[in-house]
């Protein structure tokens, strides 16, 4: 077993791939690092297949930025890095 510490990330889920990719582009353009990942089952709900993974320190600001352009985050959760 590795002794590497697991990191916790925030995950945003979206209802359409279009919204997920629009959010990815907007956040990257504004300097918020995000990584698209397959939507984790734990987010539940009617989400598209792509979710965005963020560092927890960026999450609150990112959510505000997305709301401003009416790109609502449909689900929010946390996952541990694997």
């Amino acid at each position: 077993m590795s002794g590497r510490q697991r990191r916790t990330f925030v995950v945003f889920g979206f209802t359409t791939t279009h919204a997920a990719l629009a959010a990815e582009q907007l956040l990257k353009d504004l300097g918020v690092p995000v990584t698209p990942i397959p939507s984790p089952k734990s987010l539940g709900g009617a989400l598209c297949g792509i979710a965005l993974r963020l560092d927890p320190v960026d999450a609150a600001r990112a959510e505000i930025l997305l709301e401003r352009v009416e790109l609502a985050v449909a689900a929010r959760g946390e996952i541990e890095d694997v």
Partner: peptide
């Protein structure tokens, strides 16, 4: 089909463009 986790819903999603 529109992909994603809404697949179990019998209805088309309300969101565009899907």
């Amino acid at each position: 089909g529109t992909g994603g986790g809404g697949s179990e819903s019998p209805d088309m999603p309300p969101e565009r463009p899907d």
